[in-house]
Amino acid sequence: MQRQTVIIRTLGLATAVALAATAVTACAPQTADATPAAPSSPAPGGSAAASPSASPSSDGKPGDASPTPSASSSSSSSSSASPGVKPIMANGDESDQIRELQARLRQLKLVSTAPTGFYGSKTTAAVKTFQSQHGLAATGSVDEATWQKVQSLSRKPTDEELRPPTTNEVDAPDPRCMQGRVMCISKESRTLAWMIDGKVVSTMDVRFGSENTPTREGEFKVEWKAREWTSTIYHTAMPYSMFFSQGQAVHYSSDFAARGYAGASHGCVNVRDKGKLSTLFDQVQVGDKVVVYW
Rank of each mutant, 00 (worst) to 15 (best):
R104F: 02
H134V: 02
P87R: 05
G135Y: 12
G117S: 05
R163Q: 13
L136Q: 14
K61V: 09
G120N: 02
P164H: 09
L136V: 12
K149R: 15
A138M: 10
S72K: 06
P87I: 05
T124R: 12
G84C: 07
C184V: 04
A126L: 14
D93C: 06
K109I: 08
S189T: 12
D159V: 11
Q151P: 08
K109E: 14
S112R: 13
A193L: 05
V85S: 15
P83A: 11
A172Y: 02
G135E: 11
R104H: 02
V182K: 03
D171W: 01
P173R: 05
D174L: 06
S73P: 01
K86D: 01
D64P: 08
M195P: 12
S66M: 09
I185N: 07
L192P: 02
E94Q: 08
Q97A: 15
T129G: 00
T167R: 05
G135C: 12
S57K: 14
W194N: 02
L136M: 13
A193V: 00
S154L: 00
R155E: 11
M178D: 15
A193T: 05
A65W: 04
T116M: 12
D171L: 03
P165H: 03
L153N: 11
G84N: 08
V127Q: 10
A103W: 05
S74G: 10
G180F: 03
T68V: 14
Q107R: 06
V111W: 09
W194V: 09
R104E: 01
I88A: 01
L192N: 00
A138R: 14
S66G: 10
L153H: 11
L162Q: 07
I185G: 06
T158V: 03
I98S: 09
A114C: 04
R163K: 14
S82I: 01
R181G: 03
S79E: 06
S141A: 15
T139W: 01
K187E: 15
S141P: 01
G92C: 02
T166A: 02
G60E: 11
S141D: 10
G135T: 10
A172E: 08
S74E: 14
P87M: 01
R176Y: 13
P175F: 11
R104K: 10
T129F: 07
S132H: 02
E144S: 11
R104G: 05
S72F: 08
T139I: 07
M178Q: 15
D93G: 01
G63V: 07
D96L: 07
S74M: 10
P69C: 07
A65G: 13
Q133E: 15
L153T: 11
S78R: 13
S112Y: 12
S79K: 06
D171K: 00
M178T: 15
E94T: 07
M183K: 01
T124A: 11
P173E: 09
Q148T: 12
A145Y: 05
A65L: 14
D96P: 01
T129Y: 07
N168K: 03
P175Y: 09
M178I: 09
V111S: 11
V170I: 03
K86A: 13
S76W: 15
S58I: 14
G92N: 00
G117Q: 04
S77M: 08
R181D: 04
S75A: 14
S121P: 04
Q97Y: 04
S189W: 02
S70C: 12
